[in-house]
Structure formats: structure tokens, C-alpha cells
Computed example of a mutant assay.
Amino acid sequence: MLYELRIYTIYEGRMDAIQDRFKEHTFRIFTRLGMKVVNFWIDATGQNKIYYVMEYEDMAQRQSLWEQFKKDIEWIQVKRNSEENGGLIVEKIDEYFMNQAEFFRLGN
């Protein structure tokens, strides 16, 4: 398995907008496209950041799924609508790709 940690830096005053977009639309679109979110966090120190981890079979599947997502008609409309009145939401996205260490297993 391949895991991707995605860290979004959110523009000031737009945290509610990103949370609403994920809660009301993005997770559902991900599910429809077969994209798996392992977990999702909001920064605990007050930074305008969200963090989430996605799981893929491999990098080829990851690339394919994200290409589908970017071209998805519903996603394009949701993004446009969510940015219509308040402007851009996401300032920066950092992506980190990881494989689970063979010597680590949950429950140890």
C-alpha cells in the first residue's frame, strides 16, 4: 500500500469553508470515485491547516484517481461555488508519500 499525507494551508478566515466543503461534498465525491481517506485532522495549535491521509494500491492508482477527481464535473462545480463569495480557500498543498514500515504493526 501507498499512503499520502496531504497538508493544506488555508487562507485566513476560510477554515469553516474548507471544513464545510469536505463535510458536505468532498468526502462524498472521494467515495464515489473510490478514493480512500484513512483519517483527517484539524490543526490543534491554531494554525490554519488541515491534514489527511489517503490510501492507494500504488502510485499509478493514486495518479489515476486524482486525475479523475480534478476532471469531475461535480467537484469543479463544488469548488467554484465554495470560492464564489469568499475567494480562494486553499493557499498551499503539501504532499508526502509513505510506505508503512514492515517492523511496525498497530497494537504492538
Results as ranks from 00 to 15, higher is better:
Trp75Thr: 07
Gly34Tyr: 11
Glu102Tyr: 12
Tyr52Phe: 13
Leu5Trp: 09
Glu24Ile: 03
Gln77Tyr: 08
Trp66Asp: 01
Ile50Leu: 10
Phe40Lys: 03
Met1Gly: 10
Glu95Cys: 11
Leu5Phe: 11
Leu5Tyr: 09
Gly46Met: 15
Lys36Cys: 01
Leu106Asp: 13
Gly13Arg: 06
Asp58Cys: 12
Gln61Tyr: 05
Met35Asn: 02
Ile7Arg: 03
Leu88Glu: 13
Met1Lys: 15
Lys23Asp: 09
Leu106Lys: 14
Trp41Gly: 14
Ala44Val: 13
Phe30Gly: 06
Phe104Ser: 15
Asn48Trp: 01
Gly13Met: 03
Phe103Pro: 00
Thr31Ala: 15
Ile76Gly: 02
Phe103Glu: 07
Ile10Gln: 01
Gly87Leu: 04
Tyr96Ile: 13
Ile50Thr: 12
Ile10Met: 03
Tyr52His: 12
Lys36Leu: 02
Leu106Glu: 13
Ile29Met: 07
Met1Pro: 02
Asn39Trp: 11
Asp58Gln: 05
Gly13His: 07
Phe104Met: 15
Arg14Cys: 00
Val90Gly: 04
Gly87Trp: 01
Ile29Leu: 10
Gly46Ser: 14
Ala17Glu: 05
Asn108Leu: 05
Leu2His: 02
Glu74Phe: 06
Gln63Lys: 07
Thr9Leu: 00
Val90Cys: 09
Trp66Phe: 10
Lys49Ala: 01
Ala44Asp: 13
Arg6Asp: 08
Ile89Asp: 00
Gly86Val: 04
Gly34Phe: 09
Met35Ile: 13
Gln100Val: 10
Ile7His: 06
Leu2Tyr: 04
Arg6Gly: 05
Gln47Glu: 14
Ile42Leu: 07
Ser82Met: 09
Leu2Glu: 01
Tyr8Val: 07
Tyr11Trp: 04
Asn99Pro: 00
Asp43Ser: 15
Met1Cys: 10
Ser82His: 09
Met1His: 11
Phe103Ile: 11
Gln77Trp: 08
Ala101Glu: 06
Trp66Gly: 01
Phe22Glu: 02
Leu88Ser: 15
Lys79Ser: 09
Phe40Cys: 13
Arg32Met: 14
Gly13Leu: 02
Ala44Leu: 15
Thr45Leu: 15
Thr45Ala: 15
Gly86Pro: 03
Met54Ile: 10
Asn108Val: 08
Glu24Pro: 00
Ile7Tyr: 06
Thr26Gly: 04
Gly107Leu: 05
Glu57Pro: 00
Gln77Phe: 06
Phe97Glu: 13
Gly87Asp: 12
Glu57Trp: 03
Gln19Asp: 02
Trp75Gln: 03
Leu88Gln: 14
Ile7Thr: 14
Leu5Arg: 06
Trp66His: 07
Thr26Gln: 01
Arg62Asn: 07
Glu55Tyr: 05
Lys70Pro: 00
Tyr96Phe: 14
Gly107Ser: 06
Glu57Leu: 12
Arg62Glu: 04
Met54Ser: 08
Thr31Asp: 12
Ile18Tyr: 00
Ile89Thr: 04
Ile93Met: 12
